[in-house]
């Protein structure tokens, strides 16, 4: 067995240490944001906070939780992410299955593939898109967050590549049993593609969770904004030269700590979901079902 050999053990030790170090390097910025969120405003504005809070306080979190817009936008974001992800995954599965076939089996697949990919590269830009949204009556409507982004070509292509890895024998057996393609997809392909579906689901969730521009442009009320849009409007620094000065707003201006708290709370749901999805990355799922 290779992993008992001495050179491999040494390699493994160094490898693990190196990767842990890399992990540490990746977590530091988030710790910094956390430290800022628990620090006093004066210290944060002076850039005195590194990795540990200065003058510990939870004021920023109280302000965030007490902001009704934060909570309502959190709910919109959850709704958007769940509905959007389910729809995207459903459409991707349906479209990826036929496109994963060879062109000898499904003649039109190449045409379809290019029709799909073309939309990844070319776009008419914002103006005509806006007109379409408006004519469809999606302006100031929750579904504007869902429908335009329902088809994710990138994920569809990823999935079709995963589907190609599904052993042919499985499919043929099903078809010979008289199952249609819909049933083959659902009862054969999907169960063996769990790692792929988990990956796609995660990507889709993250995409929906982080999208902010559509909310800003097509929704009118802050209360309807998804969280990412709301956060975007608070994080951006203001250019004071182009606005009129109101002294009472000065106080509200420097919200570094509150922003940090909101960034952290805003990212938290997608951060904690990953470890749960990892259990789908278990090796041998495909093989297991072949043996059955």
């Amino acid at each position: 067995m290779y992993h008992k050999t001495v050179p491999y053990r040494i390699f493994n030790l160094f490898n693990t240490a190196f990767l842990l170090l890399l992990g540490l390097l990746c977590v530091l910025p988030l710790i910094h944001v956390l430290a800022v969120s628990f620090s006093a405003k004066s210290a944060a504005d002076a850039n005195l906070v590194n990795l540990w809070p200065v003058d510990f306080t939870t004021v920023a979190y109280e302000k965030t939780i007490n902001n009704p817009v934060f909570l309502s936008s959190l709910w919109v974001a959850v709704k958007r992410t769940v509905i959007g992800t389910v729809l995207t995954l459903g459409l991707a599965c349906l479209a990826a299955y036929p496109m994963s076939k060879e062109s000898t089996v499904f003649k039109g697949r190449n045409v379809y593939a290019w029709v799909f990919v073309f939309t990844m590269i070319f776009s008419g830009g914002l103006v005509p898109f806006y007109v379409v949204i408006q004519k469809l009556g999606l302006m100031n409507n929750f579904w504007v967050l869902i429908l335009p982004a329902a088809v994710n070509v990138w994920l569809t292509i990823l999935l079709l590549n995963f589907f190609r890895g599904v052993p042919k024998e499985l499919e043929e057996a099903a078809l010979i049993d008289g199952a249609g393609h819909f049933r083959t997809l659902i009862s054969i392909y999907l169960p063996v593609s769990l790692p792929a579906l988990a990956t796609l689901g995660l990507f889709s969730m993250v995409f929906h969770w982080n999208s902010w521009f559509d909310g800003l442009l097509y929704l009118h009320n802050k209360a309807d904004y998804p969280l990412a849009t709301f956060l975007q409007t608070v994080i951006v620094q203001k250019d004071m030269s182009s606005m009129s000065i109101n002294p009472k707003e000065m106080e509200l201006l420097s919200q570094k700590t509150v922003n940090a708290a909101q960034i952290f709370l805003g990212a938290l749901p997608v951060l904690v979901i990953y470890p749960f999805l990892q259990k789908f990355f278990v090796k041998g799922l495909v093989l297991g079902s072949v043996k059955e």
Binding site: L216, L217, K222, Q232
Partner: peptide
């Protein structure tokens, strides 16, 4: 209509 004016959103809208 109304729009929260960050990232130049008002001018764009």
């Amino acid at each position: 209509w109304s729009v929260t004016d960050s990232n130049n959103a008002f001018a764009t809208k």
